[in-house]
Design a protein around this nucleic acid. Structure first.
Lengths: 162, 162
DNA sequence: TAATCACTGGGCAATCTGTCCAGCACAGTG
DNA sequence: CACTGTGCTGGACAGATTGCCCAGTGATTA
């Protein structure tokens, strides 16, 4: 499952310029088209690349407020709570975690006031004992994989690709 | 900036089958190719769609452990800490938050043992007073935008698109 | 040594992209 | 009510890209 240097460069390239095709990628990487094609197929069936879904910005959709809520769950209610949260559109992701809280979820809302509504919606469910929320003020490091890919591919993917 | 129904259907379609082209999308949506092209351009310059970066799975890269760390920062050290964390490849994202902790970051590691190393690396910096970490056990709801997009587009994007 | 594997370099038909254009419907304005 | 801007349609075109196939090569493995 290890990723080699070429894989790393390919992923980084795709991350930087997602819309380029196989041909262009092969030119940038200096390898044959078939190679790029094979690598991409492999990376996808490996599961290293899950897909190329559009990165949606909730803020641009009218949900500029992001928050993380730690939920404490009543014993044995986990499954129900999960199912409940899955139905709330403002819940962007949900994790079960170790430690004091039992679950951590990422929420978005239209405003701070609206966040109250979202939280009520989230918490207004029997299995949830308590929730503590932290509002995101800034996002100095947005979700990123490039450094990790570079590290994983042994590499030192020099500078700005090409 | 509001997203209309067609935009919603387009985004959902792209999310489900990211590799389809403009032509195919126009067929699926039952509109002219030019329309899809125009919508996509608009959505991207709007910032609603940030891009189409590959979704990398850290687990497949050899980093199966995910954790969230809440950091407490020494007064006035925020900028330095941000800069420090940005250099750590295992830090996938970083937020500054309200509440007790001052920052929340998502980490990955090769194993639970390796997580210790990562945390040491993260915390081993002067501005950080304390860190508390929660390891992710399950991820019942992986990061998703579709429900939000559907809600934002007024919609009721029926079932499985097409 | 034979076999396997990954990569190269090339070719081909089918498809898609980028770009234009004219026509049409609709909403807002004067 | 006529005018205008905007968004969508349907079509056209050349050029680029894709999916697919093949033969040759070098390296690694049985």
């Amino acid at each position: 499952m290890a990723i080699d240097h070429l894989d790393g460069r390919l992923i980084v390239l795709l991350a930087r310029e997602p819309r380029i095709g196989v041909l262009e990628a092969s030119r940038r990487l200096g390898v044959a088209r078939g190679t790029v094609q094979a690598r991409m197929d492999r990376l996808q069936s490996n599961g290293v690349i899950r897909g190329f879904g559009p990165d949606v910005d909730p803020a641009a959709l009218g949900y500029p407020v992001t928050a993380f809520a730690t939920l404490e769950i009543k014993q044995g209610q986990g499954a129900d709570v999960r199912a409940h949260l899955a139905t709330v559109a403002e819940v962007l992701e949900l994790h079960t975690i170790t430690g004091h809280g039992d679950m951590l979820c990422r929420l978005v809302a239209r405003s701070n006031a609206d966040l109250q509504r979202v939280i009520d919606r989230v918490v207004g469910f029997d299995g949830i004992v308590r929730a503590s929320t932290a509002i995101v003020m800034e996002n100095p490091v947005p979700l990123r994989f490039i450094p990790l890919v570079e590290q994983a591919s042994g590499d030192a993917v020099v500078g700005s690709d090409r």
